[in-house]
Amino acid sequence: MLEISGISKRYGGLQAVKDVNLTVAKGEIVSLIGPNGAGKTTLFNLVTGFARPDTGHVRLEGDEVTGLPPEAIARHGMVRSFQITNVFANLPVIENLRLASYLHLRADLTSDVLGLSPAREKAARTMEEARRILALLDLAKFSATPAKRLAYGQLRLLEIAIALCVRPRLLLLDEPAAGLNSREGEHLTALLRRLRDETGLTILLVEHDMDLVMAVSDRVVVLNFGEKIAEGTPAQVKEDPRVVEAYLGTPFEEEPA
């Protein structure tokens, strides 16, 4: 589904991402982990067009999307959320989803501009879909609430709802569990599984919450200092000495003589 090959990005003296290869198969949930500053969010930005890679390629189902602007990549079906909460804060929840459904609301120019029935029907179908997504995420009762009034946990769910409204083939989530309590985290785990199992969605996520990563991932990819240092099933990665070292520091530091 997603094929990242030899991608690199340098910011001044900092090699943020170095020659990373990564593939995600259809219907897979892959987690990207690594210590702070390992280049996870940079990699997300490179893949989704919010930053341009210096070298390397990004292909989505065989289509070359390297260096396209974010809006074009979203049209290819690759949609992301952001690490820092990002919603249309002033608008009610349902209007957030209406804007997010933009690509599916558009009818032909004439009926779009004149408000003819093809456009109306499309809008009605799209809003039905948006309501279904709201219900799926347990947000239906907040439909009319301005997004800025939502509690933090609901806000994170709204971000996922917004991404889902674009009807992605591949969903990229940047730390969706950050700031959630453990009950909300479990809820999110179940939700991600359901999305994969019921709709066949492919998911790539950056996450620090190891419980979530271990519970939900088919595969885990570990970055450190911009390089991929390990890849495998959650169990394999957990045992990998390079990963343990990256997370805990060098053995020398751990066991001062």
Binding site: A74, Y102, G115
Partner: peptide, 26 residues
């Protein structure tokens, strides 16, 4: 008609949150 069309919708999305608007394909 502008405001009710997809053009108006897209414009509002850009006004409210430019980055997010781009992420959803606008």
């Amino acid at each position: 008609r502008f405001a009710r069309s997809s053009y108006g919708l897209g414009a509002i999305a850009v006004r409210e949150n430019r980055r997010l608007a781009r992420a959803v394909g606008i």
